[in-house]
Design a protein around this nucleic acid. Structure first.
Lengths: 221, 221
DNA sequence: CCTCCATCTTGACGTTGACAAGTTGGAAAC
DNA sequence: GTTTCCAACTTGTCAACGTCAAGATGGAGG
């Protein structure tokens, strides 16, 4: 990335900042993201990431234990982005009643614009699911949605433990609907996408599906 | 699969039947399924499959072009099983109004009992999505659901082209909901599963979510 | 200036998917 | 019933991968 900004002569003491390379950890994460977008999840290679970062093939081991470690970090960043995507989409929506749909569209748009990352984030085996920071990031992404749901429906939904995700069938149903739409779209099961116009069309579809579901939800309440 | 039926002395001319090995193609598919269940999608190895089938590492190439070819066939078989699971679940349900939910539970139960296969079936990059037989099998699994939906709701839904999947927001929404539940459950996002009792609990949850959704759907109609 | 250690490199090992070339054995032709 | 032939399978090889071990390097702290 850009060269380190402050105190070019002396680097800060501890945190992962400037070393011989500059900041290999983040450089590797960015390289990994690029590889994922270009070659997909199954085309990911640790050595390729090292190559793009301009270091030897064994260098990553000093920042991430192994390939799974790097991928876990990439997934964590992905969840942060997903959280932010929902937050931004929600913020851009003026109508209170459409907040949930806006967040959902943000969710789906993220999935469609970062398909490989999205696939990685929800894939067992490639990620260390015991990593605390990863767990926290993943939970935050869901929490945003619960929070929005709560705001729109006036229901008080708290997310205290993992089990709570399954405790409210209404929230679970909504989340599953959105996640299902996102995964089906990403995997091309809803017809070929890729192009920007197709993505727009799909989010429009998603919007109508969600509108429908929510209207029903409201009708019943 | 079963040994050739006619003319035990003489093998039929063309179709993949008994060779030196017996029926390597199916043996490889079965080995692949075993590897997937034991080691997961990312632990899959062509050579391991060959080993389990008792042949050399290059033997699979004569039946499947490459690893992707074998995995595509495994995924195709998986879709056949998914179709059958839905059909069986539906057949066991006496109440007409609950047919759709029964099929959906069959869908989710399949996903939970064959997690690796399910993940493979809906994963880009590992599968040849241009393979005709695969496409047909995948479409059939969805067609079962559309058919059931149609039977329950009296709506006439035809599945003529790929684009039709996205044409009816009602069907798409239902499918997405179920698929979302299945994928989230498989990836452990709804809490740890694995155990049989957990699976039962999850399908019960799914049933209630679906009941809720369908009741709303009915209310509105 | 010197020392130390995190960072990075070099080299190696075992394993993988794919390819090429050789072997085998049963069906078909004679 | 012998021969021919070719699909099915084997052996050998290659580049690339992830991981480990051991060496090199250079900036920070003494």
């Amino acid at each position: 990335m850009e060269p380190k900004k402050k105190r070019p002569a002396r680097r800060a003491v501890r945190p992962p900042k400037a070393y011989h390379h500059g900041d290999l950890a983040t450089a590797l994460v960015e390289a990994a993201e690029a590889v994922l977008t270009e070659r997909g999840v199954e085309g990911f290679t640790l050595r390729e990431c090292a190559r793009r970062a301009g270091v030897s093939h064994a260098a990553p081991a000093h920042h991430f234990k192994d390939a799974k470690g790097l991928l876990t970090e990439v997934a964590r960043v992905g969840f942060d982005r997903l959280t932010e995507a929902q937050r931004a989409a929600r913020a851009a929506e003026p109508e209170l009643k459409d907040l949930l749909i806006a967040a959902a569209v943000g969710y789906i748009r993220f999935a469609l614009t970062h398909p490989a990352q999205f696939q990685l984030m929800f894939q067992r085996g490639l990620i260390d699911h015991d990593n605390g920071r990863f767990i926290q990031a993943a939970r935050a992404a869901f929490a945003i949605y619960v929070e929005t749901y709560s705001a729109v429906t006036r229901e008080t939904v708290r997310l205290e433990s993992e089990a709570d995700k399954t405790s409210n069938p209404r929230v679970l149903g909504q989340w599953a609907l959105i996640h299902g739409l996102a995964t089906l779209a990403v995997q091309g099961q809803l017809g070929p996408n890729r192009s920007v116009s197709e993505i727009a069309k799909l989010t429009a579809y998603a919007r109508s599906v969600l509108m429908n579901a929510q209207k029903l939800d409201m009708t019943r309440r």
